[in-house]
């Protein structure tokens, strides 16, 4: 029995915003199945009473004074944009045709 099915991988690709071709899905499904089966070994560790670590070192929130500092100009911020219009990022339509 596989750890992860091809349908699940197709769903993950949609969630991940990756428009994968059918043959890519077949290939990744086989590989991800193998990887998920291998990483599932973490379940062998008895860790019920162990706190999770999201980070290696203890962190505290960092504040800075709320002061105006130098930042990117609009020209700099837009310098790498695929499309620009009126000093703004131009993007494809966000809503469906009928919305």
């Amino acid at each position: 029995m596989s750890a992860i099915t091809r349908d699940e991988v197709a769903h993950l690709a949609r969630l991940s915003r990756l428009a994968l071709a059918d043959e890519e899905l077949d290939h990744f499904a086989a590989q991800l199945d193998q990887i998920v089966a291998a990483v599932a070994r973490v379940a062998e560790v008895a860790a019920d009473d162990i706190p999770p670590s999201s980070h290696a070192l203890p962190l505290t929130n960092v504040f800075r004074p709320d002061e105006v500092r130098a930042s990117l100009t609009p020209e700099q911020a837009l310098s790498g944009a695929p499309a620009v219009e009126d000093d703004r990022f131009r993007v494809p339509r966000i809503l469906g045709e009928e919305a």
Binding site: V45, A47, P51, S53
Partner: peptide, 14 residues
């Protein structure tokens, strides 16, 4: 089962 458990393993490694 996956991310949460991995974070616990991370604690054990530390």
């Amino acid at each position: 089962a996956y991310y949460g458990q991995a974070q616990k393993v991370r604690t054990l490694i530390s």
